[in-house]
Amino acid sequence: MQIDYLCDHPQLIGELAELNFKEWGHYRPGDTLEARTERMRAACGKGAVPSVVVAIEDGTLLGGALLIDSDLDLRPQLTPWLAGVYVKAEHRGRGIASQLVKRIVEEAAALGVPELFLYTDASQSLYARLGWEVVEELDYDGLPVTLMKYAVTR
């Protein structure tokens, strides 16, 4: 398995956008797969914010993660964010999500970013194991979420 920039594998943009749309699209009423795909294409930076990394094995997409400016309308002052960490169900339990998160942290460190933020409704324990700290518990459009941060430069 390798973790690489999505921009180096443009044939996977549509597939990753579709996985993200199926997982989280219902949180954005009115969103479409086409709009999600265009946002994914626009986020395909390399060594910058935004960037997208993907886990690939034998040419197959296993999952991905994003480094973006903002991901939570309730906290627009916080930047940048780890977002869209997703691993296909059949590849979970192999540490892929952890490797994707670590790669985004490395990308942020290379950019001199002091802190990263994320929010999650179900993966608090994964992020805590990776050194993320809880900032606060929030209600985000009726969904209880945990806002977390990671001190990139320690």
Rank of each mutant, 00 (worst) to 15 (best):
I3H: 07
Y5L: 14
D8K: 10
D8Q: 13
D8W: 06
Q11D: 15
Q11N: 15
L12F: 15
E15Q: 15
L16E: 11
A17M: 08
A17S: 14
N20V: 09
N20W: 12
F21R: 05
F21H: 11
K22P: 05
K22D: 13
W24P: 01
G25C: 04
G25D: 05
H26V: 04
Y27D: 09
Y27P: 02
P29N: 13
D31Y: 10
D31T: 07
D31V: 04
T32R: 02
T32K: 02
L33T: 03
E34Q: 15
E34H: 11
E34W: 06
A35P: 01
T37C: 13
E38C: 07
E38S: 13
M40L: 08
A43E: 01
G45L: 08
G45N: 05
K46N: 12
K46D: 11
V49Q: 01
V49Y: 09
V49A: 03
S51H: 08
S51I: 05
V52H: 08
V53M: 12
V54A: 10
E57D: 15
E57P: 02
D58L: 06
L61M: 08
G63E: 00
A65I: 07
L67S: 07
I68A: 03
I68S: 01
D69T: 15
S70K: 14
D71P: 01
D71I: 00
L72R: 01
L72A: 02
D73F: 14
D73L: 09
L74K: 15
L74P: 08
Q77Y: 07
L78F: 10
T79E: 15
P80L: 09
L82S: 01
A83Q: 00
G84L: 08
G84T: 06
Y86S: 09
Y86I: 14
Y86E: 07
Y86T: 11
V87S: 03
V87E: 02
K88S: 13
K88A: 14
H91N: 13
H91T: 09
H91K: 15
R92N: 03
R92M: 06
R94M: 12
G95A: 06
I96L: 14
I96K: 11
I96Q: 10
A97K: 02
A97I: 00
A97N: 04
A97C: 04
S98P: 03
Q99C: 08
L100K: 09
L100Q: 02
L100M: 03
V101Q: 09
V101L: 08
V101C: 11
K102W: 06
K102C: 05
R103N: 09
I104T: 00
E106R: 13
E107C: 05
A108V: 06
A108I: 14
A109M: 10
A109D: 08
A110W: 04
A110I: 02
G112L: 06
P114I: 04
F117A: 05
Y119S: 06
T120Q: 02
A122Q: 12
S123E: 05
Q124C: 03
S125P: 01
S125C: 04
S125V: 07
L126G: 04
A128Y: 01
L130E: 04
W132Q: 07
E133Q: 15
E133M: 03
V134R: 10
V134P: 00
V134S: 10
V135R: 03
V135P: 00
V135T: 09
E136M: 05
E137K: 07
L138N: 00
L138V: 02
D141S: 13
G142E: 03
P144A: 05
V145C: 04
L147W: 02
L147C: 09
L147F: 02
K149W: 10
K149M: 12
Y150D: 09
A151I: 15
V152H: 10
